[in-house]
């Protein structure tokens, strides 16, 4: 469906700003029916990558194939089955109603809105917008506008749908709703969706696969569940009463997995990062040797956010 090969984009210097290497050798392939997240911090190059896929930004080097067509050589053929929502709620006409927007974009893409009435009704209902069908888009809430923008991208039947930050600026509920709807679109309609986000939670609960991008380069391309497994390192936090003895302190210093997080005459807190549980027993042994009273041992939640930060800070991981 989508094949990107060694994409490079440097924005030239302008108005005293130095040139920006926004995308630096990005390659990936996405098959039909996948829901892939393009994740990265601000300025990582997500929007630039997506806009190149849309044929709106011209790459300096690299190739893009959409439905087997070379985008740079056969633009209109390649873009035929592709639609995108690029600026959240901004790519709809604010003076047209919800229904009029759907009708306009149907016609723009070569289909007669009159023959697609039931399709339009279906999406109005699916996105919970039936009650707002005759309301001008500018009067909708931000979440509704965003849903309408996505509905507009779906209405022409494109097999590939690209969404740049589809949940940006939405409240928790609207964001949740959109994520659920996207999952349904992929499972029920078999469309291919690529979404960008800087929010790991969106990826964790929406996407099967994630491509993590930082400073224009891909630092991980994995199934979300594999990535979680791969980093299934447990971190325990141990809190003891009182300070450590000198012997304990030097013994713990020999165990690299241990970090003394805080220490005071009343209470000491350690964090133990371990790949296998034997280290934990070793640590508890050291603590027991000084007769320290353990107040609590907690396992910290392993989440996508930490993995993401580790990857971004650690400069990458090749799987």
């Amino acid at each position: 469906m989508i094949k990107v090969d060694s994409l490079v984009k440097t924005y030239p210097a302008s108005k005293g700003n130095p040139p920006v290497k926004a995308v630096d050798g990005v390659s990936f392939e996405i098959a039909k029916g996948e829901l892939v997240g393009l994740l990265g911090p601000n300025g990582a190059g997500k929007t630039s990558t997506v806009k190149m896929l849309c044929g709106l930004v011209r790459p300096d080097a690299g190739r893009i194939y959409l439905n087997g067509q070379d985008l740079l050589a056969k633009r209109s053929m390649a873009l035929a089955g592709v639609s995108a929502v690029l600026e959240g709620n901004r790519n709809i006409y604010w003076r047209l109603t919800t229904r009029e927007n759907l009708e306009f974009f149907t016609a723009l893409n070569g289909q007669d809105p009159k023959t697609l009435v039931s399709q339009i009704d279906h999406y109005l209902q699916f996105f919970n917008l039936s009650g707002k069908a005759n309301v001008e888009a500018r009067q909708l809430s931000r979440g509704m506008q965003q849903k309408l923008a996505i509905a507009v991208a779906l209405i022409s039947g494109s097999q590939v749908v690209l969404l740049d930050e589809p949940t940006l600026g939405l409240d928790v509920q609207a964001s949740y709703e959109i994520r659920q709807l996207l999952k349904t679109v992929v499972t029920e309609e078999g469309r291919t969706i690529v979404l960008t986000t800087h929010d790991m939670n969106v990826v964790q609960d929406t996407c099967e696969r994630v491509v993590i991008i930082n400073e224009g380069r891909i630092i991980a391309d994995e199934l979300v569940k594999n990535l979680l497994d791969l980093f299934r390192v447990r971190v325990y936090r141990i809190v003891i009463q009182g300070a450590l003895t000198d012997e304990q302190r030097s013994a713990l210093a020999n165990i690299p997995a241990v970090i003394i997080e805080s220490e005071s005459p009343e209470q000491t807190s350690l964090s133990v990062r371990l790949e296998d549980s034997s280290v934990l027993y070793e640590v508890i042994g050291v603590l027991g040797s000084g007769n320290s009273l353990i107040e609590s041992i907690d396992q910290e939640q392993n989440n996508f956010e930490r993995i993401f930060l580790e990857l971004v800070e650690g400069g990458g991981h090749s799987a």
Binding site: K51, S83, A84, L86, E87, N91, Y93, W94, F105, L108
Partner: peptide, 12 residues
């Protein structure tokens, strides 16, 4: 507004 990009992605 961001609609220009949509026009550019259309079949026309």
């Amino acid at each position: 507004q961001g609609t220009l990009e949509q026009l550019y992605m259309s079949i026309h």
